[in-house]
Amino acid sequence: MTEFFASGRAVDVVLAVLVIEALWLKWRGNRWMNILPALLPAVLMMIALRAALTGEPWYLISIALTLAFPIHLYDLHRRKMLRNGSDDPGT
């Protein structure tokens, strides 16, 4: 089990689950412009975790985490706009 986590394979499983979730959301009728901002921060954080577990340089970890933050902020802003009845920003 230690090797499963140390090799990053555990993160690969989580990434596969995120891909399945995205496909399931699309199949349920959601648009990609609504799915991607919601899931992309999680994907980037998982990439950062995989890099940390496998001993990649610190800057690769920080790049993935830095990219996740503005996308997360955009998603929060987008959800607030949708909740307040504004136009769907994904159109």
Rank of each mutant, 00 (worst) to 15 (best):
A64I: 02
P70N: 04
A48N: 01
L73F: 14
P57M: 01
G90N: 04
P57K: 03
D87H: 15
M45W: 12
A51C: 07
L15V: 03
V43Q: 07
Y59S: 01
L40I: 15
L76M: 11
R9H: 15
A42M: 11
D88W: 11
E3W: 11
P57S: 05
L53I: 00
G90I: 02
T54D: 03
P57N: 02
V11S: 06
N34E: 13
I35G: 08
L82A: 07
T91L: 08
R9P: 01
L25C: 05
G8T: 04
S7G: 05
T66I: 09
A48T: 02
H77D: 09
H77V: 11
G8W: 08
A16R: 05
K80P: 00
I20M: 08
G55W: 09
V19N: 03
G55I: 01
I71D: 04
N30G: 07
V11I: 11
P37G: 04
I61D: 04
M45E: 09
F4H: 13
M45V: 12
M81L: 14
K80A: 11
L40M: 14
M46Q: 12
I71Y: 10
L23A: 07
D87P: 04
R78P: 00
M1K: 10
G29A: 01
V13T: 04
V14E: 07
L36C: 05
N30A: 14
R31N: 05
I71A: 06
R9K: 13
A42V: 09
L76P: 01
A52V: 02
I47R: 09
L73K: 15
L73W: 15
E21V: 12
I35C: 06
L76A: 10
V14K: 06
L15I: 04
A16W: 11
R28T: 14
L60G: 10
P70I: 04
I71T: 08
N30C: 09
M46P: 02
V17Y: 11
A6P: 01
V11G: 03
P57T: 03
A52N: 08
Y59W: 14
